[in-house]
Design a protein around this nucleic acid. Structure first.
Lengths: 124, 124, 124, 124
DNA sequence: GTGGTCTAGACCACG
DNA sequence: GTGGTCTAGACCACT
């Protein structure tokens, strides 16, 4: 489990934790039933407040990515292959929807955008 | 000049004004030397506080998109065609950079993203 | 008579007119009894409001640099050589006083300042 | 941290705060990573509005002198020794540039200016 | 009329 | 507690 917190980011810390956990679940590096670090230990290792981690875990539980057993710990909810793909597609579309709308307004062409993506994708 | 404020958006009002003005400048519908509406009249017509509009104008001034003469008004700073293209490309790249990074982490393929963009672009 | 108005400056226009006229009087290019352009003609040639020029002339009259005869025009008040020197010295000291204070606070050395002045002075 | 507000000055309060903070950063009495007083506490101790202090902090942030983490506080951005010197020189030159130009117009000699600076510098 | 500054007070999100 | 945003209303200087 690898989570990186950027203090200077404008995004709240709990959101950073959430998205990174989701990404790892969708990618498959966190699998069904796997136990997540306890709230306290993750908080300590990230150097953030316990409350912050708890909020992230709570949100993820609401979204169905994990479940918590009081006094024992939190566990990953396995995602079926179809569900992973569906989720991924949904996230991609959401992220791109507004971006594309703005590009259109500015008069940027579809061709230019596709080209830039190809370029950015190659870079390491 | 056309500006729409969405109260439900999580983006602050002054930012909405900023991005919409920038878009119109880059698109070319606001041209060199053109006088912008006074902060007071724009505030009135948008139904927001004078200070909110002023903050947007101030930011745009430090970003070099307009200049203000006290007691007279605010004027658009003409953007050369090269600068427009450069700016547009810069904005596009910035917006896509992190998005692509996340897609990669999730294991979404480049082909899928290009396909989705093509689809989203066509929709009216 | 040569006066240049910078619209983008933060200094008010009437002040720009004042300082430039004072400078020319102290330099000697405007001499005793010489008639200044009428408020209206100067306003027209500078492209500013009559009120603005009038304010500058009024201020200069209060400061004793010129006198106005209603219905005829405005005339330069001759400055004795001693007065010119005294005035110049006063202006120089005023302008430098605060500047030097700030330099001291920042820990800039006297030697550095003298050196920079020498350099700036040579440049054309 | 020492900041003095002069109500009689024509310079706006937020600018007074800005320049004094910059001076202290360039002088080195505020160092890398050091936490600045919260906008609220500084506002209280200066007897000005929270917004006035915020405006100063915002400006300094866009100028790269500090960074702010929402909900935590504002911190000084360390300035390398070279950058300090460069900045100082830049400020000195800017402040002297126009002043010298005016001196030239009035026919004041370089020698006189250097002499006056020497005198003013010694005074305590 | 215009912009520039400042105030006091309010609500929100984050930690 | 912190900063981020927004409001309504005020006074000033310039044109």
């Amino acid at each position: 489990m690898n989570i990186v917190i950027t203090n200077t980011s404008k995004k709240p810390i709990y959101e950073q934790i959430e998205t990174q956990l989701i990404e790892q679940i969708l990618k498959g590096s966190l699998t069904d039933g796997e136990q997540l670090p306890s709230i306290r230990s993750l908080a300590r290792s990230l150097g953030v407040s316990v409350i912050t981690v708890k909020r992230a875990y709570d949100d993820l539980e609401t979204q169905g990515y994990l479940y918590t057993i009081g006094g024992k710990g939190s566990y990953v909810v396995g995602q079926s292959q179809e569900r992973v793909q569906e989720k991924q597609r949904q996230i991609v579309e959401e992220q791109l929807y507004h971006t594309i709308a703005e590009f259109k307004i500015m008069g940027v062409g579809k061709k230019d955008v596709l080209e830039i993506i190809s370029l950015l994708w190659e870079e390491e």
